[in-house]
């Protein structure tokens, strides 16, 4: 097996706020291999976006990264420890160069007063040795690639002149034009209609396999994950509770939270079925539960155990791992 392109090891992210320290990400570890799409699922507030932003050190100024956490990116045959980069100039090779990001809200992520083309050319000038004319040609070419008709005219338009789907296509064209090693897609289709979502997902899948990059796909939509991702990590309150191949997670989930998420989804093939919500509300990050973070809502809670101890991540074989006492009784018996 090839060495992973990106390794995140025991990443912990805290925010200092007026109300106290908030732990948004707590001991998260995962790997991303070349050409792989890793789906990161979870509710709002589970720390998906914060994890993604940490890869490019994009979190706000009140962020502290926990002591022994590491993010290692393999770039041109050397390992770069992202968290220890101090010089903004060194950060440039990573931000927008080795790693690109597609944001959720395409309207908010383009500068409103600069043309689409202007923004595309600017980043190419920063990250490559192209001159202005080459950058312009490549940008128009990329706009064509993502299925924007009349790309030459669009190049000189502003983001408000484009529709939502078009804007997200332009965003993808922009993110891919620097040929990044890793693409982070943070809810890339959440703001779009289903018909447009289907178009954009197809396009992303094509481009990803063509460029052979690794993708971290963040979404709360398990359907989108099922249709695009190779592997899935499920996050809850800053922790990854279950990881596995997309088939393992969707067809044989082990963690009660993953099971609950799947059951809560309306099933189009069985209209009569009752909807089963995951009981209770997600706790405030200021009052993180002791023990297993999910125990306050868990239907399979083991009293005296889940609310006291933190479950370890247990490998179930073939890349499927889960952090839950109830799901790993065998391991429990042997200890």
């Amino acid at each position: 097996m090839s060495r992973p392109l990106l390794t995140v090891d025991n990443l912990t992210v805290d925010f200092k706020t007026d109300e106290g320290m908030i732990t948004a990400v707590d001991g998260v570890s995962f790997e991303l291999k070349e050409g792989e799409i890793l789906g990161l699922v979870g509710e709002s507030g589970s720390g998906k976006s914060v994890t993604a932003k940490s890869l490019m050190l994009l979190n706000a100024g009140n962020t502290t990264y926990g002591g022994d956490g590491k993010i290692v990116l393999r770039h041109e045959d050397r390992d770069i420890d992202v968290l220890s980069i101090e010089n903004p100039r060194d950060m440039m090779t990573i931000r927008g160069g080795a790693i690109s990001m597609i944001f959720q809200e395409p309207m908010a992520s383009f500068a409103p007063a600069i043309t689409i083309g202007g923004q595309m050319v600017e980043q190419l000038l920063l990250h490559s040795s192209m001159n202005k004319r080459e950058a312009r040609e490549l940008s128009i070419d990329m706009l064509n690639r993502v299925g924007i008709s009349d790309a030459k005219a669009r190049f000189d338009q502003y983001s408000f002149e484009l529709s939502g789907g078009m804007r997200q296509r332009a965003m993808i064209a922009m993110a891919l034009s620097t040929q990044p090693k890793v693409l982070i897609a943070d809810e890339p289709t959440t703001a779009l209609d289903v018909t447009i979502q289907a178009q954009v997902l197809d396009l992303m899948k094509d481009l990803i396999s063509e460029y052979g990059m690794a993708v971290l796909l963040i979404t709360h939509d398990l359907g989108v994950i099922a249709q695009t991702a190779d592997r899935v990590a499920v996050m809850y309150l800053g922790k990854i509770v279950e990881t596995g191949s997309v088939r393992q997670i969707i067809k044989a989930p082990k963690h009660p939270y993953t099971k609950g998420l799947l059951k809560a989804l309306p099933d189009l093939d069985d209209l009569g079925a009752a909807l089963t919500p995951v009981a209770g509300d997600i706790p405030s990050p200021l009052e993180r539960p002791a023990g297993c973070v999910f125990h306050t809502r868990c239907p399979e809670i083991i009293a005296g155990r889940c609310n006291m101890d933190l479950p370890e991540t247990t490998d179930l074989g073939t890349g499927h791992s889960v952090s839950c006492f109830a799901a790993t009784p065998l391991v429990e018996a042997s200890t």
Binding site: S163, Q197, A198, Q199, L201, G223, A226, Q227, I250, L268
Partner: peptide
């Protein structure tokens, strides 16, 4: 209906894909 991403990764590919907006 066919644009809704199916929860089964092995589900058959959709029949109709809409072009344009």
């Amino acid at each position: 209906l066919s644009a809704i991403p199916h929860l089964d990764p092995d589900a058959e590919k959709k029949a109709i894909k809409l072009e344009g907006e």
